[in-house]
């Protein structure tokens, strides 16, 4: 029983990151109907920004070698600031890779290429400026808190994991409240439902697309910072595998569905945690195996709406 509960705890904290990630994809997908392949690069950017804002120095391989901010921010300020920085980058991605195509009503296929191009540029800029080395966030960020909390019955959780879980849950709660209660959130949903009709009703759909990108960027930056905190930054490419898994999670839950993204993230996180140690090499295939089976049995995803083919 303890083993099972411990698996659940580990799985939930990993799954929460996947869910944050998939939420970013889903926001963009629901308003534009396309997938933003630069999302993994934005996640990477968030991780590096968090590192810099916490007062970390650039290693010797980057063009900015030795650069360090004059003051080190505390974690509670660095994480949201990194999120804001990533949101700004996400808006730039929208302006260069999405807006020109959207204006022209281009094929969805082209967005895959342009957003990938933006991601390639972003990742390689990071590599150029910061070098390809791994970065670990400073260790004493959590102040007096112990590294591991005991929950009784032999269960334990790393403080970082708990933090991750709490921040992710808070963000998801705020996001769903905002989407369903606020005027701007409802406008965003209207654009997601039908952009043309929304425009006829006086909703500025271009602004809503930008809003979706800014929010998605913020979530990507936050997820990047949290993962960097939990497992350190392995190099400029470390967002890619999370990006792919986020994609799997996204489709698993149902494209464009916010609760689906959360459910998909938690399922994949828990399923990965359940892979026994001697088979841990196969862990990366779990999300995709799930995805594949779900796609074949229920193509619209777990919580997605059935697609109706229009004539």
């Amino acid at each position: 029983m303890e083993v099972l509960a411990q698996l659940l705890i580990n799985g939930l904290s990993v799954g929460a990151v996947y869910a944050l990630f998939a939420l970013g994809y889903t926001l963009v997908f629901s308003v534009l109907g396309v997938i933003n392949f630069a999302h993994g690069a934005l996640f990477t950017l968030g991780a590096y920004l968090t590192y810099l804002l916490l007062g970390g120095a650039v290693g010797s391989n980057g063009a900015l070698a030795g650069l360090q901010l004059p003051l080190a921010l505390p974690l509670w300020a660095a994480l949201p600031l990194a999120g804001l920085g990533t949101a700004a980058a996400s808006l730039v991605v929208e302006a260069v890779a999405f807006r020109p195509l959207r204006r022209r009503g281009a094929e969805p296929l082209l967005y895959l290429i342009t957003s990938l191009g933006a991601g390639v540029i972003l990742v390689n800029l990071i590599q150029l400026l910061m070098g390809a080395e791994a970065y670990a966030l400073p260790g004493q960020l959590l102040g007096a808190l112990p590294a591991v909390l005991a929950l009784g019955d032999g269960l334990q959780i790393r403080t970082v994991q708990l933090l991750l879980l709490l921040v992710a849950a808070l963000v998801m709660l705020l996001l769903s409240l905002w989407l369903n209660r606020s005027r701007a959130g409802k406008a965003l949903q209207a654009v997601a439902e039908d952009a043309t009709t929304a425009r006829l009703l006086g909703i500025n759909s271009g602004a809503m697309v930008q809003l979706a990108f800014a929010l998605a960027g913020f979530l990507a930056g936050l997820a990047g910072g949290l993962v960097a905190l939990s497992v350190s930054i392995a190099g400029p490419y470390f967002g890619i595998s999370y990006g792919l898994k986020g994609l799997g999670v996204l489709v698993l839950g149902g494209l464009g569905s916010v609760p689906g993204a959360v459910l998909g993230g938690l399922i994949v996180g828990i399923a990965e945690a359940c892979v026994p140690g001697n088979l841990s090499g196969y862990k990366d295939a779990v999300a995709f195996a799930f995805l594949f089976v779900v796609l074949l049995l229920r193509p619209q995803g777990l919580l997605g709406r059935r697609l109706v083919e229009k004539v």
Binding site: I35, L247, G248, V251, L255, F288, L291, F292, E309
Partner: peptide
Amino acid sequence: RLQGIYLAIATIALVEI
């Protein structure tokens, strides 16, 4: 049987598996 982006993602999943 999958359409559009679903097919693309399913094939990405196949390659990853």
